[in-house]
Design a protein around this nucleic acid. Structure first.
Length: 475
RNA sequence: GGGACUGUGGGGUAGCUUGGUCCAUCCUUCGGGGUUCGGGACUCCGAGACGCCAGUUCAAAUCUGGCCAGUCCCA
């Protein structure tokens, strides 16, 4: 019997317990920030990867895989980059008993692994654009408290790296990545905001960084991904240049796009409730669970009908489990709800005889399906669940923001704040002190709600060049 | 990076102050049997732990030190 902590008041406790109870991860491995992918968690991750792969490949990106170890000499070529990661890289300094002449870095991200090779691959404008991605594990020596999926030391990392002919094309790639992420977020049912980070918070080595943030209750936000424009910051040091059509030699402009299993944590945190995880259909390890209900001794066995329906649904491409374990139906309901299964079908003697199924989705909507085109009705019920989940998520998203017009208003914020900012760092830090959090940056797209007028900077009052910005307490 | 706290079966806990009553308590879980099965069943039998390494002592879950792991606060 599982009693989860109250999600609204104890989000982190709730999160840790629900991951454990739903068996999405096993955090008893014994190395800080490194957890075990359980069978159920791995299946969820596989769906996550599938969504990412489909969306990014649709934009003309090709999968590659680079080695995990990077020579110190390559790692150090871009100054800001190494400064940014210096404190959190793992070093490999010995092979057996032999000290290595050139120590190796266990990749915290793969710019410095890929770019020396990109310099070999890119020679002509005809080689461009170069759009490649990989999904690999990367390593960062986190000193803060680690949490499964949200902050780990071994990261399941999606990273796209591209080379473009010029700055404008690279900017267009950033836009294309944003659109691709929009596709992914639709599948995860995660309403998000694209926010251009302030100068002091951009990726080490980037020209600018666009973060993908979601609200997660109160003033808290979670960054679930990022897209960076590097301009020539890396292509210079790594010598990635090409011969243009006019015969001149030019440096490429680069972009990257990074995501991780943090998305899985975000899905759990955003959709989960007091009963446990709620998976959107695209991510659920199994989308439908069929529970046959035996009935009195001597009654007809509903198992054959359940198995036949499972086959019919699988033929339509659905992921289906039939739970024939030796438990009472109620116990099964609780367990599958805890694990976030979108749709449960109950088949007892009545349904088996009538060719129907009683369907209950994870939001509690109950109805009788069939007997006409039962598999089709199941698909429809699953689609309805997805729509209801989206409506609920979008309503919470819309309610997560509020405007702030003065620094004092920021104190004790209970929602993510939207405010006018002049762009100066000093003013930004005043905002951060007031909200006891971070100035996330300026919105890339439309704001999450309608705003009135365009007053001066919240900190200094200047009206010149102010823009809408967001402030929050990042998790 | 600096500080504080914590570590008992798979999970959660009692015991620790004042060493012996502890081959360690209770709930849950797990294995086997029986009766059950439309929202967390009952019953019988069984399994499973003092983070690691040293030290103090006649005697250590309990005291001391180091290490490992975890949590929280500060930079």
């Amino acid at each position: 019997m599982v009693e989860l902590p109250d999600k609204s008041t104890r989000l982190i406790d709730w999160y840790l317990e629900v991951l454990d109870a739903a068996q999405l991860t096993d955090k008893r491995y014994g190395v800080k920030g490194m957890n075990v992918w359980t069978p159920y968690g791995f299946q969820a991750r596989r769906q996550l990867d599938a969504v990412m792969i489909r969306a990014i490949e649709a934009t003309g990106s090709a999968p590659v895989e680079f080695p995990a170890l990077i020579p110190q000499t390559e790692f150090q070529k871009e100054k800001d980059h190494i400064k940014g990661f210096d404190a959190q890289v793992y070093w490999v300094t010995r092979g057996g008993a032999t000290e290595l002449d050139i120590p190796l870095v266990l990749r915290p991200t793969s710019e410095t692994a890929m770019y020396p090779v990109f310099a070999l691959w890119v020679r002509s404008h005809r080689d461009l654009p170069l759009n490649v991605y990989q999904i690999v594990n990367t390593f960062r020596y986190e000193t803060k408290t680690t949490r499964p999926f949200l902050r780990v030391r071994e990261i399941h990392f999606f990273e796209e790296h591209t080379c473009q002919v010029d700055e404008a094309t690279a900017t267009a790639r950033v836009e294309s990545n944003l659109a691709a992420f929009g596709e992914m977020a639709r599948a995860f049912v995660l309403p998000f905001l694209a926010i251009r980070r302030p100068e002091w918070d951009k990726f080490p080595g980037a020209f600018y960084s666009v973060a993908l943030d979601i609200p997660v209750g109160g003033a808290r936000t979670l960054q679930i991904g990022s897209i960076h424009h590097y301009r020539e910051n890396f292509s210079g040091p790594y010598g990635i240049r090409y011969e243009a059509a006019d015969g001149s030699q030019k440096l490429v402009h680069q972009t990257t796009f990074g995501l991780s299993e943090r998305l899985l944590g975000a899905v759990v945190a955003v959709h989960g409730d007091q009963k446990g995880v709620v998976f959107p259909p695209a991510l659920a390890p199994y989308q439908v669970v069929i529970v046959p209900i035996p009935g009195k001794p001597g009654a007809p066995d509903p198992a054959p009908a359940a198995l036949a329906l499972a086959d019919a649904l699988r033929a339509r491409g659905l992921r289906v489990e039939v739970d024939r374990s030796d438990e009472r139906p109620g116990a099964k309901y609780y367990r599958h709800e805890l694990r976030g299964v979108p749709l449960r079908l109950e088949i007892g003697a009545r349904e088996a005889a009538a060719g129907t199924a009683t369907a209950v989705d994870r939001l509690g909507t109950k109805r009788l399906l069939g007997p006409n085109d039962l598999p089709g009705a199941v698909e429809a019920a699953l689609a309805d669940f997805g729509a209801a989940l989206r409506a609920a998520a979008e309503a919470r998203f819309a309610a997560a923001f509020s405007e702030a017009r003065s620094l004092t208003e920021l104190r004790g914020s209970t929602s993510v704040r939207v405010l006018r900012w002049c762009g100066r760092e000093a003013c930004g830090h005043e905002v951060e002190t007031a909200i006891d959090g971070a100035l996330l940056g300026t919105a890339e797209g439309p704001l999450p709600f309608k705003v009135e007028g365009e007053g001066g900077c919240i900190a200094c009052g200047a009206s010149e060049g102010t823009r809408w910005a967001l402030a929050a307490q990042p998790l």
